[in-house]
Every structure is written in C-alpha cells, then in structure tokens.
Design a protein around this nucleic acid. Structure first.
Lengths: 338, 338
DNA sequence: TTCTAAAATACAATCGATTGTATTTTATTT
DNA sequence: AAATAAAATACAATCGATTGTATTTTAGAA
C-alpha cells in the first residue's frame, strides 16, 4: 500500500486535469501555461509524486543512461577513468551504470546482456583479460549499437577505441632501463589475447633491438599480472641466469614482485631495477618508489564519453573509426635510480 | 531501423501464436508445452529477440535491482564490500547499480532520486561525510522503503545498520599505543556529524581515561581524512608540545601524514608511532608498514545484502531494527614496533 | 461417437508516461 | 456580438511485457 506511488493519473484526478497536461507540465512544456503548471507542480509535491523512469524510458525509447564495464573498480586507473566519464555524463544529463567484469568473459557477457535488456543508450568498456574473441562485440557493432572501448582496445572493423600509445610508452620505459645501464631486462607481460599487452611487449622488444640487445623468450614472463602472479614471476626471475631489471606491464605485478625480492634481500634498484605501468597510488608510497607510466586516466574517461555521446546523438557516424590515442608519461622514481 | 528490436509481438506474428503464449514460453511457464515452447524459443533466437526489461519491470512492479551508494569506489574497503554484495546478489538473481557520492550530500540525494525513479527494490548506502541531517532517509524509511546503511550508520528509528564495533576497535587501537609506552597520543578524527567518527573518537578517549591519561582537546585533530588533510594534520602535530603517537580514524590520512613526517626526518615509529584504520592495501606496502584495523569488508557486504533481501521479500519486518555489528581486528605492523 | 476434464492457447486489460491530433476556451478583431 | 486566431487543455493510441480469465483443442472415458 505504501509502496504504491502517486502517478500522473493521481494528480490528474485530484485536479480534474487531463494526465497529458500533467505530464507536459511536469516536463516544463510550453504547452501548459504558468497557472496550471504551478497548480500541477504543487499537487505533485503534495502527493510525493516521483516520475517512473521505467515508463518514461519505455515510451520514449531513450534511457539517457550508458553502461560502463571495467575489469575492477578498485583499480585506481579505472576509478579515475570512471570519474572522468561521470563528470561529462553528468553535464550531458546522462546516468551511468558501473559494472565490473572481474576479468571474466562470462561475467562480461552477462553484464552486456543486462545492460542491453535495460536498453542503455550505449556502452563504454575495457574488456576482460579472458576475452579471446570479439564475436559478441562484433555483433553489437554490426547492429549499429554504440559501443566504445577504452584502455584495452578491440580490433574489429569500424571501431572506436580510446587508448594510449602503449607501444611508444613501453619503448620509452625499456629504453630508460637501458639508459641507466641495464642489459638483462625481464618483461612481465599480460595475456597476449589482449592487443594492449601485445603492444607493450612489442615496445619492449623494439627498444632492446634498437640497442642491439638480444630478445630472449625466457625473459618475457607472461601472466595475468595480478598480485600473486607478481610473486610467481619474481621466483622465475631468480632462476634466470642474470637479471638486472624488470619492465612490468602493470604496477600490481611489479609491486608484489618487488616486495618478494626485498624479502629475499635483493636490493632495488641496485641489483634489480623496476619499471611499472599505470602509476597506481601505491607506486609512490612503496620503498623504493616505483618508476612507472602515468596515463591520462581522467581525460581518457571524458573523451570516451564524448565520443560515445556523439555516436548516440548522430546515429549517422557510427560506422566511422574514431580511435583516439592519448600520450602517456614516464615518471622516474627511485626504483630506477642508480 | 536497426535499433528497433524484435518484440514478443514480432515472434507472435511470425508464428501465428498469441503474444501471451510467447511471453509465457520465454519465461519457461508450465502453461506452454514443449513443442510450442521450442518453436517460440527458436524463432526468438532467429529474430535476435532480447527481452525489454523496462517493459517487464514496469508491468510487474519489481526490478530485481538494488542500488548501492558508497562515498568512492576506489577505496579498498568499499570495493570489497561491493564484491561481497555482488556475490550474494548474483546468487539471488539481483542486479546491482553501483554509485559514488564522492562525499557530497547533494550528489547523494540526486543519486537516491535517480535510483528511486528507476524503482530499485532497495538501497544499500554508506552515507557521505557531508550528510549532517538524516531527514531524507527518514522519509524513505517512513514510507517503508527498504534501505540499509553499512559502515557509516544512520541513527534513525527502526533502522538497520551493518557496522563494526568502532568504539571497541578504537579503544583497542589506542590501548595498543599505550601498551607500547605512548602517552601523548594524537587522534585524527573525521566529521563528528558521522556517528562512526564519534564512536572512534570516544573509543580513543575511553582508552586514555582508563589509563589515567588526560584527554587534551588540541590533540584531537578533526578533518575529512583525505590525503591533503593528512598533510595538514601532520603539520599541526609538529606545533603541539609533545607527540609520541597518532591514532588515525582512517589509513589515508595516516599514510599521507607519515609520508610528510618522513620527509621532515621524523622517525616512525621511534619518534611517532602510527595506527590507522581500514587496512587499505597500501598500508602493508608503506615503510614502515602501518598498524591498522582490519574490517570484515567482504562479509559485511554479504550480510548487508542478505538483510536487505529479507526486507524486500517479507515486507512485514521492515520496521524492525536488525543492526548487525561485526568485530574487527587490530593488525600490528612496524609502525608501532619499538 | 459423444461427453467431460484437462491441457493448451487466445483475449484483453494493465503498468505509467508520452505525444500527435482534436477539441475547448480565451483573447482579439471587426 | 460574431468571427477568427491563438492559446490551453483533453482524447486516445502507444511503448513491450505480463497475467487473470475465457476459449479452444486434445485426450480419455463412457
């Protein structure tokens, strides 16, 4: 009984004014004039009226809502991107639904289904590590459904990605290690199913090649780059003939590896120097502080929303690839100071 | 054109079967038997049918969705609580909408309005620091709207909170400092509008009193406990006559204060010992590692959802206070080792 | 074969808001 | 006062799915 909310029809009845007029009044239409409008608004307040968005969205076939899917919300990079998205979305009068895939494709697919069944106007997504094929994305894309990928791009036709120049960033990071005199450089790499990690690995390899350093397969350690993977990778390092530095494709793995090695009395950066990726807040707090790559997270979020917004509003340009590449910045800290 | 999705009526027409039967078939009702059901399901797949949840929710007046509002998703404690909520929600076939208030009441109110207009079945919330009065919550509560508070409780009548024993935890934390020989203990406190911070402060004071230590007002430094507040508070410490330790009501402020003091060549824990609150991942990485209080975040999330679920399903017991208090655990690390 | 019960499916109203069109009211002009 | 235009408001269909009730079909019994 208490749950039954007042509707425009209750207001309509109470005032003897048609519900269409009530609707227009509440939407501030010019077709209802001041006096009537005021009466309606007052009555609405009196009855504790609150618009039923479900009905409204159903009727108008527009939700003014977008879905945002990230691997995990606790990652600083992602929460910052979300902050950027929210800022612009708020100004454009869009709501956002935040979801986390937890790196599982299955969950990712289910989330997309849910978002679509709720008829969000578009989706911003950073795909999960588990995603090995892009068929489902391709299907949405083909239907002309507005969807934009950020950070972790998706290489399908006519697709829009918002990314950084991962190759270049990794190249610079690796070159920085070479500059300080490193030769035996390990790379912590992520799943090669993700374009992102391929590019980071390629950047690493290109830097080695440029400086005439042999690329050794066993010096590229692939994992999911989670905390526990960092420890495993650190153990593997200790079994390699000679290692003087690590370029990790993310901070999380770098940091847990550093901690493991510190416990084993290995001096960082003297014995092994470290470069991470993403500039998680933790990287400045750890001792030694971690050299890493800063991404323009907030700006990426803003841009991603803007591009999605364009796709939503002018249905025309959906087929165009508008990939936007941001540049990142190497932040040099103690973990590479010799 | 492409945006116009297939509906049950399209399936109905294509097969010459009434839409009501189609609806039942897709909902796996026993009123439609195997052969018809199969035909319908196949056609649905063929047409790329996808249920319109908006219509369904509107009709049934049930969304199977709850809203979760936290101050910020990037806080480890909150993202862990959310993980707990999601786990149980998933099993109960509920969707969750994650929102962040960013500690702003205005935003918080707007979020609640949006959630309600989308007719979520209930709300889980950890209120913002800015919230000074609970009128709006009281209103929902009075309407019998299912809403449960976690971590940061809301003291209104017949309300359910999922919290830890903040008084006890703070008492123990402070006593631990006393145990290691501290006497001049500063407390970093949060806004006293929040019950939570009052309790933490009271726990601190009670411990001092128990051990015959005078409570000095100027030793209680109140702020929003953000990163920049930690630095400000650290500066204030340096102006106090004598300080041998700090009990901070959260890790964030403790950590930024520690970093500031380290730069000023103050030895932690020798000169000043530190205890934080929440066990953020960063607290174990910083040097020295931070003694802090671990909260059962994941379990709290699970419990919060369960209680909300009960309220949603048996409308009867909504008026009952079922506050659940979890116990926390002091984790002793280097920042208090002498 | 006819009748009856049960099984299967169809009909039609409904959820709450929106919106194109129609109608009524008001104001203006002659 | 009548005619007309403009302003204000009412009517009714619609969005897509659900569901109580009614009807038709099928199967089994007499």
């Amino acid at each position: 009984m208490e749950k039954s909310k007042a509707t425009i029809h209750d207001i309509s009845e109470a005032l003897g004014i048609d519900s269409s007029t009530v609707s227009r009044a509440l939407n501030d239409s010019s077709r209802v004039k001041g006096k009537t409008k005021k009466k309606i608004i007052n009555k609405a307040r009196e009855l504790g009226y609150q618009r039923n968005s479900l009905a409204s969205k159903l009727r108008t076939n527009k939700t003014n809502t977008i879905g945002v899917i990230v691997p995990r919300i606790s990652r600083h990079f992602f929460s910052s991107v979300i902050a950027g998205i929210e800022e612009v979305a708020f100004n454009s009068n869009y709501d956002i639904i935040i979801c986390q895939s937890l790196e599982s494709v299955e969950r990712e697919k289910k989330l997309i289904e849910t978002l679509l069944s709720n008829r969000v106007d578009g989706i911003l997504i950073s795909i999960s590590m588990e995603s090995t094929n892009y068929d489902h994305f391709e299907a949405y894309k083909r239907q002309g459904y507005p969807i934009i990928f950020f950070d972790r791009p998706c290489n399908i036709l006519e697709n829009t990605n918002v990314i950084i120049n991962d190759f270049q960033a990794s190249f610079e990071a690796t070159e920085h290690l070479i500059d300080i005199g490193c030769k035996d450089i390990v790379h912590f790499s992520g799943p090669q199913t993700l374009e992102l990690y391929k590019k980071r690995r390629n950047g690493y390899m290109a830097a080695l090649e440029k400086h005439g350093i042999l690329v050794r397969k066993e010096y590229i350690i692939e994992s999911h780059l989670m905390q526990e993977d960092g420890i495993e990778s650190a153990k593997k390092i200790l079994n390699l003939p000679k290692v003087d530095s690590v370029f990790s494709a993310n901070d999380t793995a770098a940091i847990s590896a550093m901690q493991y090695l510190k416990k084993k009395h290995i001096n960082i950066p003297k014995d092994i120097a470290f470069v991470g990726f993403s500039n998680e807040p933790i990287s400045v707090v750890i001792t030694p502080s971690l050299t890493t790559i800063e991404q323009p997270d907030f700006k990426m979020g803003k841009e991603a929303f803007k591009l999605l917004f364009e796709q939503i509003e002018n249905k025309t340009s959906q087929k165009e690839n508008k990939t936007k590449i941001f540049s990142s910045k190497l932040i040099i800290r103690s973990s590479t100071k010799r």
